[in-house]
């Protein structure tokens, strides 16, 4: 399984979300799950199973397949809840 975070330039925000997802996965003991970050232009459906984006990019990311929209990209509680949801669903 692979999770990716996506933002406009693929430099800052998506990278931060990636690091936060990694921290959450570590707490869950699921470090086997790969995490990456991309810019909106390079992200394509085959690059990951689930894509995380901020609310403001929701309309531009529908082509990626399974997309999780974050209301706030700095809210760790929201992110944790959504990552846990994906992990439990998968197992």
């Amino acid at each position: 399984m692979k999770i990716a975070a996506v933002c406009g330039s693929g430099l800052g925000s998506s990278f931060m979300i990636e690091m936060n997802i990694q921290t959450i996965l570590k707490e869950l003991g699921r470090e086997d799950i790969e995490v990456a970050h991309y810019d909106l232009g390079s992200a394509s459906p085959e690059l990951a199973d689930v894509f995380f984006v901020g609310q403001d990019l929701a309309d531009s990311a529908y082509h990626l397949g399974r997309v999780v929209v974050l209301k706030s990209i700095i809210d760790l509680d929201e992110l944790g809840e959504k990552v846990r949801g994906i992990v439990t669903e998968e197992s």
Partner: peptide, 15 residues
Amino acid sequence: ALDCPIVFPYAPNAV
């Protein structure tokens, strides 16, 4: 201190 798109979701119209 994080990159600027962190504030975008707070006001998408203002963006």
